[in-house]
Design a protein around this nucleic acid. Structure first.
Length: 415
DNA sequence: CGTCCACAGGAAAGCGCGGGTG
DNA sequence: CACCCGCGCTTTCCTGTGGACG
């Protein structure tokens, strides 16, 4: 049997991929060629206008871009800044892209930006990943800017994930406070419309951002986005209507291009697994669920075990009681029970309240405050956002080795 | 209509980490 | 090398909140 399986493996590796011709075209992180950016001409034009003066050595405007996920915000920002960088002739333009959901504290973000812009051979400045104080990172960043660049474009993706506004404050005021001669332009990207409005007034006055709203893609635009990636597949493999259906399903949900591409890719992989020669509409429908899983995996897969356990507590309560929201007290008992089962030291109730708020901020949970009056006090009721599939979220929340042995029907979670 | 309950969430202090510095 | 420092996470403590109860 052993040698047989060796043959099977060799057989699969040796055969050309029957479905995909150039799979990277439908990879999540694939950055399309400029001519393949579809339906965002207005947005590209608008952003370019704001950054126009940069290539003459003037000050670029600060920009806040907001719009739903998968509407091409990061894509357009990266594209335009890259073009600006290459078009500038007498001006040294540096661009740094950071994802604030990875670097969610000010220090991490500054350190990352400094490292992106640095060239140690030229500056002689070293930027360690951690261990320095915030102010030292800023000092080093400013000397790098002075040394190497006339203009710096700093793209802060998921800018709302930054814990506070310190980073925006410092960057936007760096020139007026004389920290650097480099002209710093900030492009802050957020998928929360409220975030831009809630930016505190101090930040707003020094940032004075131009606001750019990216609207969702409609089904036609999604369709042409997918058409542009048809080459990922071998000729004739996609049945008629597959692209149209993928686009339609994604448009129904959020008008999210990433989701549309995910659906198409997963449909291909599904067809592959089933040894099918073509990708059918049936594969597409099956892929939608997988795409949804991927989305949640990105969203919550990287959370700490504590936050995952909190979420798992909520989903387990959902499954066992059938109700759709729960007071924090109930969530906390469920959480501590779950902690016990998986052998994790439970945090205090105060801390778990923070976890719940955090999950609500990520749009995974809905949270609602209610005053129960004399005997009840104020309580937060939290439940899964109705748009989300309970089974999927539950499954992803429990993706950690420590949950491996947990059988949710047997784990008593409520009193 | 004032009281009062019980939880929300801000403030501050403690702790461990992983670097830098002399 | 020993020592120090700031950060991020957590706990502890405590004030604020607002509708039901009497």
């Amino acid at each position: 049997m052993d040698d047989e399986s060796g043959d099977v493996a060799a057989e699969i590796f040796g055969k050309p991929d029957p479905i995909f011709e150039q799979k990277s075209l439908v990879d999540v992180d694939h950055v399309p060629q400029p001519e393949r950016i579809v339906g965002r001409d207005d947005e590209i034009r608008a952003l370019s206008m704001q950054l126009r003066s940069a290539i003459d050595g003037g000050s670029p405007e600060n920009v806040v871009i907001y719009g739903e996920t998968g509407t091409g915000k990061s894509l357009v920002a990266k594209h335009v800044s890259k073009v600006a960088e290459s078009m500038a002739e007498d001006v040294r333009i540096g661009t740094a892209y950071i994802d604030c959901s990875d670097d969610d504290t000010e220090t991490q973000a500054v350190s990352h930006i400094a490292r992106k812009l640095n060239n140690e051979d030229q500056t002689g400045v070293s930027v360690p990943e951690m261990g320095l104080s915030k102010s030292v990172y800023y000092t080093r960043l400013y000397s790098i800017l002075d040394e190497l660049y006339d203009v710096a474009l700093i793209i802060l993706d998921e800018a709302d994930m930054q814990a506070d506004d310190g980073l925006l404050m410092s960057l936007s005021r760096s020139r007026e406070t004389g920290k650097t001669d480099c002209r710093v332009g900030v492009i802050a990207i957020s998928n929360k419309v409220r975030w831009a409005e809630n930016l505190n007034d101090r930040v707003k006055s020094s940032l004075q951002p131009r606001e750019l709203n990216f609207h969702s893609y409609d089904a036609n635009q999604l369709r042409s986005i997918l058409e542009h990636r048809r080459d990922a597949f071998r000729g004739g493999v996609l049945e008629d209507g597959v692209i149209q259906l993928s686009a339609a399903l994604a448009a129904q949900d959020h008008g999210d291009a990433r989701q549309a591409i995910d659906i198409l890719r997963n449909a291909g992989m599904l067809a592959q697994q089933q040894d099918s020669e073509t990708v059918t509409e049936k594969h597409v429908r099956g892929a939608r669920r997988e795409a949804e899983k991927d989305r949640f995996h990105d969203l919550i897969g990287g959370l700490t075990i504590q936050k995952k356990t909190t979420l798992a507590a909520v989903t387990t309560l959902h499954k066992q009681t059938g109700r759709d929201e729960f007071p924090t007290g109930e969530i906390y008992t469920a959480y501590t029970n779950l902690c016990q089962v998986i052998g994790v030291e439970p945090r205090t109730e105060r801390r778990v309240r923070d976890f719940v708020r955090n999950l609500a901020f990520l749009d995974v949970l809905d949270a609602r405050k209610e005053n129960q009056g004399r005997a009840g006090g104020i309580t937060i009721y939290a439940g899964l956002q109705p748009a989300h599939d309970l089974e999927i979220v539950h499954e992803i929340a429990m993706t950690d080795d420590r949950f491996a042995d947990v059988d949710d029907s047997e784990t008593t979670v409520s009193k």
